[in-house]
Amino acid sequence: MGSLRLLAPAALLVGIVSAISIISIALTAFGLMPLVGQPRLSTDAFGALSSDLWLGLRESFVIATTSTILALILGVPAGLALVSVSRIRAALAALTSVILPVPHLIGAASIGLLLSGGGVLPRWLGVAPSDWPALVAGSFPTAIVIEFAWKESAFIALIIAAALSSRLTELSEAAAVLGAGPWQRLRRVTLPMAAPSALAGAIIIYLYTLGSYEVTWLLGRSYPEALPVLAYRLFTSIDLTARPQAAAAALLAILSAVAIAGVGIAALRRVGVLR
């Protein structure tokens, strides 16, 4: 069949590489693929790490949840501003599309220089480093959340603008003719039209922030660590027995992502984005 010939290269590459990577992570986590010694089925890695794993998982979910919510809170109005008649529209369009290709690592480096004790913001506000709150590497992952929300709000703004641009004006005018005020139009027309795209964007952001390493590592504290940071530290540990523990953390991250993706797909089906 012609269609199989077309799909095979991409599907085989993605399928085989994903599958063998996940299988090798699972085997390592359960002691069946040790770096040295005999393979032995065990859940030791999970047991030895249980408290760190749960803290890491919680940290990752806190980061993903707050980042996604903040990205929506800022991205949705920005998306609406992009399709409205406003003076900041051109500046906003240029900014959001410039931010989109900037790698998260670069954003994290810059936000670090903005929000740390000797950073640009405390300088400008005239706050001494000792009086500045620990936004970077503090007890709440503030800088991490701000970095994610900053870049992903630009993403949300652009997909919402794309979803609204075609039909918003006429529907909004129809609503105005029917007597709806600006707030009513926003709540009854604009937001419902933007909702499916915002939901799809939110799911993508949630999955990304859950599994992202560099931002959490660069701007986060040393304990407790988010799951990716914990996994990588254990993975590069000189203690070779830490390998299964690293794999256990990675496996937990994969399972969390799959679970969130499942919930996300169900939600998208409900609102009719997916069949």
Binding site: S3, L7, A10, A11, V14, G15, V17, S18, I20, S21, I22, I23, S24, I25, T28, M33, I204, L207, L210, G211, S212, Y213, P228, A231, Y232, F235, R243, A246, A247, A250, L251, A253, I254, A257, V258, I260, A261
Partner: peptide, 27 residues
């Protein structure tokens, strides 16, 4: 409509890159 291929080819969006990298590195 190839629903399975369509889903498979979207899957990497959901998977954490660091975890797959570790899995591949071990091999």
């Amino acid at each position: 409509r190839h629903p399975w291929s369509a889903a498979l080819l979207l899957a990497p969006i959901a998977l954490p890159p660091f975890a797959l990298a570790m899995g591949l590195d071990v091999l």
